[in-house]
Write a protein that binds this DNA or RNA. Sequence first.
DNA 1: CGACACATGTAACACGTTACATGATTTG
DNA 2: CAAATCATGTAACGTGTTACATGTGTCG
Lengths: 169, 169
Amino acid sequence: MSIRHGLLTLLSSGPRYGYQLRVEFEATTGATWPLNIGQVYTTLARLERDGLVAPGGADEQGRAIYTITEAGREEVGRWFSTPVAQTDRPRDELAIKIAMAVASGVDVADVIQTQRVATMRALQELTRAKRAAGDGLAQRLVLDSLIFKAEAEQRWLDHCEAVSKEKSR
Amino acid sequence: MSIRHGLLTLLSSGPRYGYQLRVEFEATTGATWPLNIGQVYTTLARLERDGLVAPGGADEQGRAIYTITEAGREEVGRWFSTPVAQTDRPRDELAIKIAMAVASGVDVADVIQTQRVATMRALQELTRAKRAAGDGLAQRLVLDSLIFKAEAEQRWLDHCEAVSKEKSR
DNA sequence: CGACACATGTAACACGTTACATGATTTG
DNA sequence: CAAATCATGTAACGTGTTACATGTGTCG
């Protein structure tokens, strides 16, 4: 539901057309999760279906603009005033992978090591991206989020290794 | 792709039937992400479609057992030897929400505060669950993963607040 | 007997995602 | 002129998810 609400939020600042929404979405959230332009249109169609946006004809250049509805505004308000719960979050593939490795006979140390290398590289990439960027506040916060998460992942991997070594002694 | 690979990994330790797979999956990953039994069957059907498992008739009690194929075993091997990349991960709803709040005129401090309360509660719940549980190693590691993540989230929220306060001064 | 756990399955939908088709306009 | 950017849209698929239908066995 992130794209849905993200686009809806952008529309709450005024009517937009599809292509513009992608540009602004990426300008806000950064290059980490590129947004396929096709998805903007499919999402707009679904938002329209649900009565959260309304097609507002075309502008002077013939672009198809969309306007947020009252119901859409309420939905945005609800989104911002409701926290993201644990149950809302998708299953964590890495956690499941390590758990499965531990439960079945797979060599956990190997899996951990492989992941650690990848996460470390990602972390370097992210710090580099942060130095390079410096654009907007929103983008920087998203980058920071990824950095904080990657660091936590490294710590968790260390923890997993320590615990599983201790267990197999 | 977590459920898919999780079930496949369980099947790599020997043939199972659907209901048993759910029990073992939840025993391994814990109660955090309950697995609807219906989903086991839909996933098994898709695994069969892709040639990763094969229906192995019924056991003595008439239960429909499934067996992993050679291709399935290879897939499991690939899963464990390939790290989870940044691009594999789903969009982070919280990061997008905060970024959107910053970019549009929404009161970020409010959003942060609401989330912080929820995350703190989740963290308490998790520490309680950890004391209560103590079952298997895999389950404990999953719980630890959630704890590490929640802590990182708290730190990130603090960071967001500090940065956005600084910005609006 | 009634409730509950065991057990299997299907239908339908949501969202995310990509591939493709199409055309206008701008710019080197 | 050719390539790139701007711009819109559709078709199709994948996974995750839930709701529903159905039936057996067991235990208080």
